[in-house]
């Protein structure tokens, strides 16, 4: 088994931490894993993406030319990456700010209003965590327990209250069930 996922969005939306936490979770679950970040010179507002490869065997290339899953948090990332998804793969998009329709018809598409959900819960910065809940619900790459344990470890230095609202955000995303199209 070899599964590759690209997470992409604006710098500041937390796409690198999503991928890093997933990689950490997959590592605790005993898989081979690589995490490859790519970001521009800008800190906020620029583009950022990362590739996570998870396998039960040694991983040759950490780069994904035809990823199984793509998670996009903004519209430019949708344009950049949708053509790369392997046929039969899945696209997860932040439908709160992505208004355009993906052009691909041979993939599964999950529209998650993650930014609105995060805002409703009181903190738009949790958009990434809501999305992660929906992503893991539909891909099952690692169990929620493992992901949340990794999240706590990765966010180690943050306040308890921030970890707690992220747990809630993850659960909200995990329980969100708008059927895929």
């Amino acid at each position: 088994m070899l599964v590759k996922t690209i997470f992409a969005g604006f710098g500041g939306q937390g796409v690198l931490i999503m991928g890093y936490t997933l990689a950490h979770g997959a590592m605790s679950a005993g898989y081979h894993v690589t995490f490859l970040p790519a970001y521009g010179a800008e800190v906020r507002g620029g583009t950022a993406n990362c590739t996570v490869a998870i396998s039960d065997d040694e991983i040759a290339s950490p780069i994904a030319s035809a990823p199984d899953y793509i998670v996009v948090l903004n519209t430019p990332s949708l344009y950049t990456f949708q053509n790369r998804i392997a046929p039969g793969g899945s696209l997860f998009l932040n439908s709160s700010i992505i208004a355009v329709e993906p052009s691909r018809r041979d993939i599964r598409i999950f529209k998650i209003p993650s930014a609105e959900m995060a805002e409703k819960m009181g903190n738009p910065r949790m958009t990434n965590t809501v999305m992660m809940g929906a992503f893991l619900k539909n891909t099952g790459l690692v169990t929620p327990d493992i992901y949340l344990a990794s999240m706590e470890e990765v966010m180690g230095s943050k306040k308890k209250s921030i970890i707690e609202i992220n747990r809630k955000a993850f659960t909200a995303g995990f329980e969100y069930s708008e059927e895929s199209t």
């Binding site: 081979h32 995490f35 780069i63």
Partner: peptide
């Protein structure tokens, strides 16, 4: 550059 930025256990 790939080895420089990639993370692995």
């Amino acid at each position: 550059g790939m080895m420089g930025q990639m993370m692995e256990p």
